[in-house]
Computed example of a mutant assay.
Amino acid sequence: MTLNVVITGSTEGIGLGLAAEFASRGHNVAICSRSADKLESALAKLAAQPGKTVGRICDVADVTAVQALWDNAKETFGEIDIWINNAGLARTVWPILEVPQGEVETMLRTNMLGTINGCRVAANGMRAQGQGKLFNMLGGGSSGEYFPGLGIYGTTKRGLDYFTDALGKELADCDVIIGKIRPGMVITEAVIREAREKPEAFEKSRATMNKLVDRVDTVAPYLVDGILATQKSGTMVRWLNGGKIAMRMTKGLFVKRPDQFEPFGL
Rank of each mutant, 00 (worst) to 15 (best):
M1R: 13
L3S: 06
L3A: 03
V5G: 11
I7A: 11
G9Q: 10
E12K: 06
E12Q: 07
I14Y: 00
G15W: 08
L16K: 03
L18I: 15
L18G: 06
A19N: 12
A20L: 11
E21C: 09
S24T: 05
R25E: 01
H27L: 09
A30C: 10
R34Y: 12
S35H: 02
K38N: 09
A42N: 03
L43P: 09
L43K: 00
K45N: 03
K45C: 05
A47S: 04
A48H: 15
P50H: 01
T53R: 02
V54C: 00
D59H: 15
D59A: 09
D59Q: 14
V60W: 01
T64M: 04
A68Y: 06
L69S: 06
W70R: 10
D71K: 08
A73L: 04
K74M: 03
E75N: 10
T76D: 11
F77A: 12
I80C: 04
I82S: 01
W83D: 02
N86C: 02
L89I: 13
A90Q: 12
V93Q: 14
V93G: 14
W94T: 13
W94E: 09
P95E: 08
I96K: 04
L97Y: 10
V99I: 11
G102I: 10
G102Y: 09
G102N: 15
E103P: 09
V104L: 05
E105D: 09
M107G: 12
M107F: 12
N111L: 08
N111W: 13
T115C: 14
G118M: 10
C119P: 05
V121S: 06
M126P: 03
M137P: 00
G140I: 12
S142M: 00
S142I: 01
S142R: 07
S143D: 14
S143G: 14
Y153S: 14
G154K: 14
K157N: 07
K157S: 07
D161C: 10
D161F: 14
D161G: 12
D165K: 10
A166R: 05
L167N: 10
G168C: 00
L171H: 06
L171R: 07
L171K: 03
D175W: 04
V176T: 11
I177C: 05
I178S: 00
K180F: 01
K180M: 02
K180E: 03
R182Y: 11
G184K: 10
V186C: 07
I187W: 03
V191I: 15
V191W: 02
R193D: 07
R193M: 06
E194L: 15
E194P: 08
R196M: 02
F202W: 13
K204F: 09
R206E: 01
A207T: 08
A207N: 05
T208I: 10
M209A: 11
N210C: 08
N210L: 09
K211N: 01
V213W: 02
R215K: 13
L223Q: 02
I227V: 13
I227T: 04
T230V: 12
K232A: 15
S233H: 11
T235H: 13
V237H: 05
R238I: 03
R238C: 12
W239V: 14
L240N: 12
N241D: 14
G243Q: 15
K244F: 03
A246V: 06
M247F: 08
T250H: 07
T250S: 14
F254H: 12
V255W: 03
K256N: 13
F261I: 04
E262P: 05
E262V: 05
F264W: 01
F264R: 08
